[in-house]
Amino acid sequence: MNDHISRRMTTFILITASVILGFYGFSLLRERAGRNTNPYAYDLEPFRRSDSANVLYSETGFIDFSGQVLTALCADPGHGLIVAAGSKMFRVDTINRISEWIPADEPVRCLAVDPERRVYLGYEKSVGVYSPDGSRLDTWQQFSENAILAGIAAGRDVYVADAGNRVIYRMNREGRMLASIGEKDPVKKIPGFVIPGSCFDIQISADGSLWAVNPGRHKLEHYSPDGDLIASWGHPSMRLEGFSGCCNPTYFALTPEGNIVTSEKGLERIKVYSPDGELRDAVALPGQFDEGTVGLDLAAGPEGRIFVMDPSRARIRIFEKGERE
């Protein structure tokens, strides 16, 4: 081979080699720079960034439960709050000091306090009844095999919401079943509960009537103690006045004035409704929670205070009206 061809060959190969090496380098570098957009992003941002102008509430403080996984919250009127973190129980007094209370038998899914301050702890398939000082009074185990207790409310009678059977039991304080409420009944025009997730919250109002959430239908339902449906309201919507997603609201609480505070997952929102379903106020909007927070249990305290259990940040957050910082 003569030198001339050889030199051309060399040049050609060197150029080729550098092109290939350049390609390898470029390919590595490009990956390093990262591609920054997801063409298939599921974007809730426009809804999360809802208008905060008409939010009259602000967060005024929080009760720190670092290291605990909060599972349930209820108000103990006049004495503060009772908080469950798995099978650990805590009391929070009126000036927000935490003290450890009795240990529960198993993880507490819901809890309630009756007017005599007896405490009812809802486990998955049973209810523990305790006196105010923490001694055990009774354990109710008469629930069916597929029961999943998700809500409890205590007044003169005790109401237990069973998500597994989609029904609310009215029981007396001795644990005797008195009635089943909310089963599908075309005659009484009761649509029946749709419980797609694990949330099935109930509360008793001052007049002894029962409020229950029907998350699959995005409604709050108002029942008489006999199980007649008095009223129901709520509609699905991403907008502020409705309930978003597939299983909302998740929790609710009744304020001393008779209003209803609701919490939602997906778009984490806390809102106050009048008893006939008119949106009164927004308490907290999605931007104030970690994305994906679930289990925002609620309690209404005195002076319009709203306690929000935030399991993601392991704290009970306190919201008050009108105190903007």
């Binding site: 670092s66 290291g67 605990q68 996984v69 599972t71 798995g86 993880p107 899914r109 998955e124 597929n146 999943i148 998500a163 597994g164 059977n165 989609r166 419980i195 797609p196 997730g197 694990s198 679930v294 289990g295 399991p311 392991a314």
Partner: peptide, 21 residues
């Protein structure tokens, strides 16, 4: 330590959360 415990418990809690009708 609490962080470790928390992660552990969070896992348990998440498992409990899956229980639904």
């Amino acid at each position: 330590l609490t962080a470790v415990v928390m992660i552990f418990m969070a896992a348990q809690w998440a498992a409990a959360e899956n229980r639904f009708p």
